[in-house]
Design a protein around this nucleic acid. Structure first.
Length: 425
DNA sequence: TCTGGGGTCCTAGGACCC
DNA sequence: TCTGGGGTCCTAGGACCC
């Protein structure tokens, strides 16, 4: 396909920006957002980056620095970020006939046929609209392929003087930028490929674009070959309009405090199975078997290590929470060993089947109608009053193992009780 | 004391079949 | 004496993404 124009727009330090929207006092302060269990820094504003806080840095190592430097620290608030993301995508759909939501904070927009000279102004208008309507600052990268649009977005982010927009659709201006970008910054080139490429003298995105595609394939499979073509402006990756049917589904969590009793473990896997059931039903899928795993800390050398997993077959394919809980607990009992401090457990389901497509046993032991009615009722109540309003008793009340979110901001946009208050005086 | 949670795609190699 | 080859399916592991 030639003559295509794509834009990649994404939120700057997206999670941090969401927090800033609802607390203007954070506007000039460094802000970071932590991963699940308050484990690592996964989003940092430029001020936080300037303090030397790295992506993925464990929080306990930077706790003192954050206190001394006045860094605002937040647990992840996925409810809030997901809602802000939906608002941004609603705007994008007004601005392009063809939008691919690529991740929670990134979307590709098809701008083919918009007129090359007007693109820059169009992108700047879009940015300021998103900023005004949602409060989120963004950057826009423009190019003839997804890989080049991503790279243009990277350039826009790193070069403040561009004002948040970079257009690499013109071949002549493009090559100058490509020669200035390290090869590891290219979408699809991770640490392993970067090391191999640098070893043969391919150091920049420009070098990679000039690499023989056959050699790229030999070194990095067909994925690497595609990347070379995309860097040359030949599109190999179409926009995905409808998300493809998902192939697997997992619910895994680190524990807030280590689990040392079987009762605690059974509670935790029941809670994870409950969540798994919600995900399956939302996607119209079911499963005939699930894997359960548990392990001790990978990091604490004083903990005796233990890691185990097993696959449990359900009597028949199902997405009923109670079936999944039973199966998950059976698996957990089978691999449980006393005397360890468990740090994490989870359940993993592959081979998902669209609901109703699985073979039925000749004599169906389940009352399918009753099961569906109960699950639907649970999902409706939980959607209305918040996840976890109704859970199976097996998922526990005390939940000492529960993942930590000790610094989570209010769910400003999705819970009436947590809506921001404004007082005029 | 404290280190995330999801996903996808690709390839090689073995088992099995005719 | 001569001892195939091509196809499919599955799994594990690597690499990458956000």
């Amino acid at each position: 396909m030639t003559g295509r124009i794509l834009a990649l727009i994404d939120g700057n330090s997206f999670y941090c920006s969401c927090e800033r929207v609802f607390d203007p006092k954070l506007a000039t302060r460094p802000v970071i957002v932590l991963s699940n269990n308050d484990g690592c820094a996964v989003a940092r504003t430029s001020e936080a980056k300037a303090l030397g806080i790295r992506m993925g840095e464990p929080f306990f190592k930077i706790r003192d620095l954050c206190r001394d430097e006045g860094v605002a620290v937040f647990s992840s608030n996925y409810t809030l970020y997901g809602d802000m993301s939906a608002r941004m995508n609603a705007i994008y759909r007004d601005w392009s006939p063809d939008v691919e939501v690529y991740s929670i904070d990134e979307s590709f927009l098809d701008l083919t046929g918009f007129g090359r000279r007007d693109l820059d102004a169009y992108a700047r208008d879009l940015r300021s609209t998103v900023r005004q309507w949602t409060g989120i600052p963004t950057c826009v990268g423009i190019g003839p392929t997804k890989t080049l649009a991503k790279l243009a977005n990277h350039v826009a982010k790193k070069n403040g003087e561009l004002g948040g927009v970079c257009d690499l659709s013109d071949e002549r201006t493009r090559s100058a930028w490509l020669d200035r970008i390290e090869v590891g910054e290219v979408w699809g080139i991770g640490g392993a490929s970067e090391a191999k490429l640098v070893a043969i003298g391919v150091r920049t995105a420009g070098d990679l674009s000039r690499l023989d595609p056959r050699l790229a394939r030999k070194m990095m499979t067909v994925v690497g070959e595609r990347t070379v073509h995309e860097l040359r402006g030949i599109s190999c990756m179409p926009l995905e309009h409808v998300p493809p049917q998902r192939k697997g589904c997992a619910v895994t969590r680190s524990f807030g405090t280590p689990v040392t009793t079987l009762a605690g473990m059974l509670e935790a896997v029941a809670a994870y199975a409950t969540r798994a059931g919600e995900k399956l039903r939302r996607h119209g899928l079911e499963t005939a078997h699930l894997a359960v795993f548990m392990h001790t800390s990978e990091f604490n050398p004083r903990d005796r290590p233990y890691s185990a997993a097993t696959t449990v077959h359900l009597p028949e394919a199902s997405n009923d929470t109670l079936d999944l809980v039973r199966a998950a607990q059976r698996g957990a009992r089978a691999i449980w060993r006393d005397g360890f401090r468990y740090a994490k457990a989870g359940i993993v389901m592959n081979d998902l089947i669209p609901t109703g497509r699985a073979p039925r046993p000749l004599f169906d032991a389940r009352d399918r109608e009753q099961s569906d009615a109960l699950m639907t009722a649970m999902d409706v109540v939980n959607a209305r009053f918040g996840r976890g309003t109704i859970v199976p008793a097996a998922a526990g009340i005390k939940r000492e193992w529960q993942t930590k979110f000790e610094m989570r901001s209010p769910r400003y946009t999705t819970r009436v009780a947590e809506i921001p208050r404004v007082s005029a005086g």
